[in-house]
């Protein structure tokens, strides 16, 4: 299975990428929402995108809205992985088409549990 990790922090892309690789995923990353939309076209399809909220150029919420506009990405799961911890933000992301929500700081176990809920467990 393939995962797209989207975060403006290189450190988080690396850490989250390593978590996903340990969980059996092939990983591609992007530094903002626009780059991620480009990667969907150039490197897709992906089974899941893990999406930060606050990023330059295009934020994670706008990425979710744009990705969900295109029916070819309907099967891709979208998981927000973010410091935006308020319920209103969670609801907003879910209404826009995100499937799951993980708050930073995360652990490998938290990510694995959410993947399992989405039917994406490999281990």
């Amino acid at each position: 299975m393939r995962a797209l990790v989207i975060d403006d922090s290189r450190a988080i892309r690396l850490i989250l990428g390593q978590v996903m690789k340990k969980l059996g995923f092939e990983v591609v990353d992007a530094g903002d929402g626009q780059q991620a939309l480009d990667k969907l076209k150039s490197d897709g399809p992906f089974d899941i995108a893990l999406v930060d909220w606050n990023m330059p150029v295009m934020n994670g919420y706008d990425f979710v809205v744009n990705a969900r506009k295109d029916p070819q990405y309907n099967d891709m799961r979208l998981m927000m992985v973010t410091t935006e911890t308020e319920m209103a933000q969670v609801v907003k992301a879910l209404e826009a088409g995100a499937n799951e929500y993980v708050m930073k700081p995360f652990t490998k176990e938290m990510i694995a549990e959410k993947l399992s809920l989405l039917g994406l467990s490999i281990e």
Partner: peptide, 21 residues
């Protein structure tokens, strides 16, 4: 990059304490 992300996580968690719902 690393310090920026730690600051971001700290700030995000504090924001959840202080904002008006």
């Amino acid at each position: 990059d690393a310090l920026g992300e730690l600051t971001n996580m700290t700030g995000g968690n504090i924001k959840s304490l202080v904002h008006d719902a």
